[in-house]
Computed example of a mutant assay.
Amino acid sequence: MNQHYDFLPNDFEIADKGQDVNEQEIYVRESAFRQFLTKFSKNKGSVIGLVFILIIIFFALFGPYMNSFGSNEQIIGNESMAPRVQFLENFGILDGSQTLKASTGSMEINRYESNPNAADTYYWFGSDVLGRDIFTRTWEGTRISLYIALVAVIVDVFIGMTYGLISGYFGGKVDMVMQRMLEIINGVPSLVIVTLLIVVLRPGILSITIAIALTGWIGMSRVARAQILKLKDREFVLAARTLGAKPSTIIFKEILPNIFAQLIIMSMFSVPNAIFTESFLAFIGLGVPMPDASLGSLISDSFKSFLNAPFMIIPPVLVLSLTMLSFNLLADGLRDALDPTLKEV
């Protein structure tokens, strides 16, 4: 005979009473963009890199207009003047004083005080040996570095990525021919190509741009080829082929969206290398011709006066180093935030 029993609240108690009870964690579903921001913000280095890039871009755009000096304006009598900032000179910092060293000793001077025409003049980064404002010329040169960074990304995305995707997707003889051509191009050093371009063209930004367009995409093409080799035999690609999709549709609409984040990350890693290449070429005299300024040419000119005026070389070196470091930190953060293989379990 079945008996009915009414359970009372006191008939049950929580196991392990008095101890911490394991509770199920509840995860709130977030959008992909919000997940990206969350992961990106956890990488403090990448956030700092992004902030510095934004600051550098701001000064590159507006820095040359923050004072009354032109980038190529030479003022006779204001040569090799130390940095002077109005709101800091009262504290004895950046007041225009500089120390001249010689074999017999050293002497501290202030060219602003000895020059009556420079009493109300302020060179925030100092002036060079021709009396030009280093602050204005530094940010003018930074524009060229940022332009080279933009060219590197565009070349990687449009040339390297397309070349690698086509080579990896079709495979066989097409892949073999394209890879052999790639090895031939990569076998010629970039510096040799730039030198040959300078013989044909004038030394300048056009020669460097063409040189980057000819060789800067090789690394990206190999990455794109490796990525497409992983995906071209997946089920969704086979399904698209079965439905009669064209190769271009499969490559750019089916496969590319799945690997685009990784390719963008790799293109960001190529930016510091492109900036350094341009600065190195300018340093050895194969870059932007005078009187135009780039960070490399500014470093080269300042290096000649390093012993007597070391303040000249500090601004371009510091801006160049921060630019390259910031792009590396940003690329590292993008990799952690966008690469699906690095997602936390």
Score class of each variant (00 low, 15 high):
I275P: 01
W217T: 00
G63T: 05
A152F: 01
L231S: 08
S190A: 10
Q19A: 11
S270M: 09
S145E: 09
G164D: 04
Y147G: 04
G287Q: 04
L191I: 14
T121Y: 03
S190L: 07
S326K: 10
Y122M: 02
Y122L: 03
F58K: 11
A32W: 11
V200Q: 09
M220Q: 15
R137D: 02
W124V: 02
I26W: 11
G244S: 07
P64S: 04
L322Y: 06
L130V: 02
Q19M: 13
I134S: 09
D133Y: 11
L231V: 03
Y123P: 01
L146D: 09
G244R: 05
I314W: 14
N110Y: 03
I313V: 07
S114D: 01
G96H: 07
F87D: 10
V155T: 04
S270L: 07
Y112M: 02
G70M: 09
R225A: 15
I299T: 08
F91S: 12
M178P: 00
R132S: 07
L243S: 14
S114M: 04
F36H: 12
P247Q: 01
G333Y: 00
L54A: 10
G96Q: 10
I251T: 03
Q35A: 09
G105C: 14
N90C: 07
A15V: 12
P83Q: 15
Y27H: 13
A224S: 10
P83W: 15
